[in-house]
Simulated assay, not measured.
Amino acid sequence: MTSTEMTAPVRREWLGVLMLVGGAVAIGFAPIGLRLGLDDLGPQAIAFWRYTFALPVLTALVLLVERRAPRKPNIYVILAGICFAVDIGFWHWSLTLTSVSNATFIVNLGNVCVGFLAWLFLKERPAPMWFFAVILAIGGASALSLGGTAEGGASFVGDRIAIIAAISVSGYFLCSKLARRTLNGLETLFWLTLVEVIVGAIMVMAFGENFLPEKLSGFAVPLFLGIVIHVVGQGLIITGLGSTPTSIAGVIILIQPVMAAAISWHLFQEPLTTLQAGGGMLILVAVWLAQRGHKVDPID
């Protein structure tokens, strides 16, 4: 095997890692956008319009980039879409009841747990360093969430709702990884979003929310979430997931609560304490260790 052939998988994986980091940074703005849009729409309606605004953009991208219609969906992409819609729906709900850092931390525990699911179901055995990185990540995320002051707006009810979202996000990552075996990143995100539009509409009706805002300006936040967060952020994550081990991806996505907590510091009067700032640094160290401890197996 030539050196070029051996380095190709490494380059693909590092590109995947960079995509995941970029996606995690982008979706760090998601809870901020939600908070800003609650004056015009309910949390479920915001999620529904996020998917709805993203769908035509994704359709155009598939047709332009692939020069064909998307391939037939598999069962895993449908399951992933359901899991994602449930995840976002309950996460949005929790964000109205607890602090941004708390809700985001709890949901992202599902990203860490998916590494164990990938080990069990996908036979992706993590490197020993990954376990140490997970301990650091959970410790850092705990400090980021629980190290705040009472003014942070935490709520036990909101935290319990976020746990449901965390379980759903584990299913989303696992099913998305399986879906990528027969679909490329764009096709996967297209089918995910189509399923999410349907499930999102059901959740709007189930929660008794209005589909339309009183003013046209009420669509501004969902439009931002649809293009920047969903198309760009989730697009980078889904694409990066195709060439990155699920366990590593789950740790990398923990950059999101660091971003969310930092941004919400001034916007929502949820200042970071010294303990929380230290927790954020621990998460970043964990991300670095998780990736550094993984080696790409040579292709025969």
Score class of each variant (00 low, 15 high):
159 D>E: 13
161 I>T: 14
158 G>Q: 06
219 F>W: 04
160 R>D: 07
166 A>P: 11
216 L>R: 10
154 A>P: 08
208 G>M: 03
153 G>M: 03
190 F>N: 01
207 F>Q: 11
196 E>L: 03
181 R>I: 11
220 A>S: 14
199 V>T: 06
176 S>K: 01
186 L>F: 02
233 G>V: 00
164 I>T: 14
221 V>C: 06
226 G>Q: 02
204 V>S: 08
163 I>W: 12
222 P>V: 04
194 L>W: 06
149 T>R: 10
217 S>K: 13
220 A>P: 05
156 F>I: 15
211 F>P: 08
176 S>N: 11
174 L>T: 06
178 L>F: 11
150 A>G: 12
237 I>T: 14
166 A>L: 02
169 V>F: 06
224 F>Y: 05
232 V>K: 01
219 F>C: 05
176 S>R: 01
154 A>G: 13
148 G>A: 09
165 A>F: 04
205 M>A: 14
213 P>M: 08
185 G>M: 00
182 T>Q: 08
192 L>E: 08
190 F>E: 00
183 L>G: 05
222 P>F: 02
152 G>K: 07
195 V>A: 04
168 S>Q: 05
160 R>F: 15
236 L>C: 15
151 E>A: 14
157 V>S: 12
165 A>T: 07
191 W>Q: 01
174 L>Y: 07
153 G>E: 07
154 A>Y: 12
157 V>E: 12
233 G>I: 00
194 L>F: 15
215 K>L: 14
200 G>V: 09
167 I>G: 09
194 L>R: 09
169 V>K: 04
178 L>I: 11
204 V>Y: 03
195 V>Y: 05
196 E>Q: 15
234 Q>A: 06
217 S>G: 06
228 V>T: 03
205 M>N: 12
151 E>Y: 09
230 H>N: 03
179 A>L: 08
196 E>N: 12
159 D>M: 09
186 L>S: 01
167 I>Q: 07
200 G>I: 10
202 I>F: 13
236 L>K: 04
238 I>C: 07
170 S>R: 07
158 G>M: 06
161 I>H: 02
185 G>D: 01
198 I>M: 01
148 G>E: 07
229 I>V: 14
181 R>V: 15
240 G>C: 08
236 L>A: 15
193 T>F: 01
183 L>T: 04
192 L>R: 02
152 G>E: 05
193 T>L: 00
166 A>N: 10
147 G>T: 10
231 V>K: 00
167 I>E: 04
236 L>G: 05
197 V>S: 02
146 L>Y: 12
159 D>P: 14
181 R>Q: 15
160 R>C: 15
200 G>S: 13
162 A>S: 12
164 I>G: 09
221 V>I: 15
181 R>N: 13
184 N>P: 09
198 I>S: 02
231 V>A: 01
209 E>R: 10
232 V>H: 00
196 E>T: 13
187 E>C: 09
232 V>D: 00
161 I>Y: 11
233 G>E: 00
218 G>K: 02
172 Y>P: 12
194 L>M: 08
209 E>K: 08
158 G>H: 04
230 H>T: 00
226 G>C: 02
168 S>H: 04
159 D>C: 11
237 I>F: 13
161 I>Q: 02
169 V>Y: 09
185 G>N: 03
202 I>K: 05
210 N>L: 14
177 K>C: 04
214 E>H: 10
189 L>M: 11
